[in-house]
């Protein structure tokens, strides 16, 4: 038990918190970017524009079906071969954004599809253009339907930032490893701290989402 007291010094704790901040930073940026890009791609998939919709569909399916870990590796170690070089932070954000955009595109597409087609027809019959109907009638309803899957996707994203430890991004998991690598007696205290910190962030997000769902629904 003394290992807990020794491991939880302010110095170690601060070191971990700095890592948690990196985790949150990477998550936030990736969430916002992938939400924007993913929604855009999802809508394009939905409107069935000739050629582009199909093309995007193929690319999205390819990316969705690859492990994120592979994309992170590829971004950091593979892409420089063709002249695209990033530091670990940028590489992590880029890989996560690409992967999550593809996941979100699929959520958005099926969210829009789930809105009754009668709604679109009704709106058109009332004199709205296709785009007006999409924007004013269909999308707001679809968004409501999309909130639960979107939030679980975002939670996955936060958890997945831990994968970037492999490209030496100094996030939470990496820092915990540094600490227990120097004194392996700190291992259990560090794993406990990791579990609590990740849980706190992810669970908090799911609670916020539950409330959001209630107020909008």
């Amino acid at each position: 038990m003394s290992s807990f007291a020794e491991a939880y010094t302010w110095i170690n704790f601060r070191f971990l918190l700095e890592g948690l901040w990196v985790t949150i930073e990477v998550s936030l940026v990736s969430i916002v970017l992938s939400f924007i890009i993913g929604s855009f791609l999802g809508i394009i998939r939905y409107i069935r524009a000739p050629f582009i919709s199909g093309l995007f569909g193929v690319v999205i399916d390819l990316i969705r079906n690859l492990p994120l870990l592979l994309l992170i590796f590829f971004t950091y170690f593979g892409l420089p071969k063709i002249g695209i070089r990033m530091n670990p932070l940028a590489a992590a954000i880029a890989a996560m954004t690409v992967f999550e955009s593809a996941m979100i595109a699929e959520i958005v597409r099926s969210g829009i599809k789930a809105v009754d087609t009668g709604q679109m027809e009704g709106a058109r019959a009332n004199g709205l253009t296709y785009w007006q109907a999409l924007r004013v009638i269909v999308l707001p309803q679809a968004l409501k339907k999309m909130i639960p899957p979107l939030v679980s996707q975002f939670i996955s994203l936060i958890k997945d930032t831990s994968l970037a430890t492999i490209i030496v991004l100094p996030e939470l998991l990496y820092r915990a490893q540094i600490i227990y690598g120097q004194n392996t007696r700190y291992m259990i205290p560090m794993f406990l701290a990791l579990a609590v910190m990740y849980f706190a962030v992810c669970y908090a997000l799911s609670l916020v989402a539950a409330r959001l769902e209630k107020t909008t629904g």
Binding site: K159, D160, A195, Y198, Y203
Partner: peptide, 19 residues
């Protein structure tokens, strides 16, 4: 459900490997 959904898989896997 909440515990295992909200902790990264990597942390769980490394726990079983290292601890």
């Amino acid at each position: 459900i909440e515990v295992f959904r909200n902790i990264p898989l990597l942390v769980i896997g490394m726990f079983f490997y290292a601890v």
